[in-house]
Amino acid sequence: MRKIQLKKPSFAYFFIAPWIIGFLAFTALPLVYSLYLSFHQVSLTTEGIRTSFVSWDNFRYAFTVDGVFVGYLTVFFRELLISVPIIIVFSLLIALLLNQNIRFRGLFRTIFFLPVIIASGPVLKELQDMGVTTIPSIEEVFIYSMASNNADSFIPGILLYVLDNIIMILWYSGVQILIFLAALQKIDRQIYEAAMIDGASAWEIFWKVTLPSIFPMIVVNTIYTIVAYSIFSLNPIIEHIKAQMFELETGFGYASALSWVYFIVIGLILVLVFVMMNSQSKKRYA
């Protein structure tokens, strides 16, 4: 019997076309154009945009003359390194708690997701200015005073940063909690039952059953967290890029160079994280 040809592939392009056009016009071309601009000195004149080729000058300027950019990058990198694991662990912990057989689960989910809705840059800025992003009266806790006395050294510095920004860090984890929760609820109950019959403790079940099952979601959440963190509007790097755009001395060419450096840094971090986590999962759960 002849199979009826139901799907004409040409129609697919009809549906995908808006995206392809948009991708070319609003993403691919701008990417190429900003790469082009990053090697140029750009000035806006009444007749239009004028560019003059400056080779690697913009990039050299970023790493030598520009006093703050490298500093911002280092701070960004350090904060990312501290915050991402905390966000992942916390959201997993909260998701595990919510996954228990508890009352008011809906209410708790509503609370934990609330920051995703209201946490825009200006709102967080206001809260930060009022000092509400830290836990109340944390200064009285012994660890805090101990850390703030040695704020220059490495570990107390990290501790201080975490304690001062704990609510900010927690507020970043709304989406991640729900992703983990959805993944936890998809694990087959029979695996747990089988493990329990075999005498595994809750602790063992967590490490041997739960964690391997949701490992792909840990990767997804890590990537999501890094992306969300790096484009958040309070990030000093993107503020710096914006400021350079309208600076007469540097202008659009230099801002483009900065945005490309930033893009490459984030890209490298993402690739590194992805490769590391993938090889880790293969080693452990293969």
Binding site: W19, F26, T27, P30, S34, L37, S256, W260, F263
Partner: peptide, 25 residues
């Protein structure tokens, strides 16, 4: 193409911002 769609998620808006700004202006 689908992978390309997903990749657009990780491109920071700052990179495409400047060309878009110039064209819009």
């Amino acid at each position: 193409l689908f992978i390309l769609v997903m990749i657009t998620f990780i491109i920071p808006p700052q990179v495409t911002l400047i060309p878009r700004y110039l064209v819009y202006s």
